[in-house]
Structure formats: structure tokens, C-alpha cells
């Protein structure tokens, strides 16, 4: 696989991850800034590093499995590895401006 192909696949995986929503905030995990890293390596192996809005979120396993399943739906992806991290912890500043606006999140002030 060339770099161009893996980059294109990574972009498709990122797009597919928009199907996964955070149930509490009701927006997709990409725009919420919960997906920290997406890459696709040799053999169509996707690596995703993600977080949740808070530690101990009861939806954690569903979000992780949902990310795996949506990435796997991309043609050319043969295997998906999803890692969960809380470093750095998620803050609302990580959301896209559009998502912040949709959810009525204040722009002012630091976390």
C-alpha cells in the first residue's frame, strides 16, 4: 500500500467514525474531539486512539466497539485496533467550532 492509499483510507475511517455518537452529548465522536488519532498501516490495519468525555463513562465499551465496527465497514480495512486513553483528558475545547455551536457550548474561558 502506498502512503497515498493509507492516508485516503484513514480519511475514510475518520468519516465512518462520524456514525458513532456520544449518547450524552448527542454529537459524533469525531466532531466532539474524542478521536485523537487515526492511521492505517500495511494490510489495511487501522489504528484508532480515542477517549471519552469522562472516565468511568458507562458507554465506554460501546463507544470503543462502535468505533471498531464503523472503521471495519470501510472497504479495504482488514483489521481495527482501538486504544482508549485519558492522556490528555478530553475538554470541550477539543470540539470543532461547529459542534460547539450545535451544542451551545461556551467558547469563553478555559477548562
Amino acid at each position: 500500500m502506498t502512503v497515498e492509499v493509507t492516508d485516503a483510507l484513514a480519511a475514510q475511517v475518520r468519516e465512518a467514525l462520524r456514525l458513532v455518537i456520544d449518547p450524552e452529548l448527542g454529537d459524533n465522536i469525531v466532531d466532539l474531539g474524542l478521536v485523537y488519532y487515526v492511521s492505517v498501516g500495511e494490510g489495511g490495519v487501522a489504528h484508532i486512539v480515542m477517549t471519552t468525555t469522562t472516565r468511568g463513562c458507562p458507554a465506554t465499551a460501546y463507544l470503543k466497539d462502535g468505533a471498531r465496527d464503523s472503521a471495519w465497514s470501510v472497504p479495504g480495512i482488514e483489521f481495527v485496533e482501538v486504544g482508549l486513553t485519558y492522556e490528555p483528558p478530553w475538554t470541550p475545547e477539543m470540539m470543532t467550532p461547529d459542534a460547539r455551536s450545535r451544542l451551545g457550548i461556551a467558547d469563553k474561558g478555559r477548562w
Binding site: 455518537i21 449518547p23 448527542g26 460501546y62 462502535g66
Partner: peptide, 23 residues
């Protein structure tokens, strides 16, 4: 609603479009 959402829609997350808890 949150627990109901988890029970019903958690398992299909990433496979199907799901409503929000608020829905």
C-alpha cells in the same frame, strides 16, 4: 433514558445510525 439508550442502542453503535439520549 440514558440507561435505556445504553441497553438498546449501545450494541448497534457504529453499525447503524442511532438516536440521541435526548430523543
Amino acid at each position: 433514558p440514558f440507561m435505556t439508550w445504553l441497553e438498546c442502542y449501545g450494541p448497534v453503535l457504529g453499525k447503524k445510525a442511532t438516536p440521541r439520549v435526548q430523543d
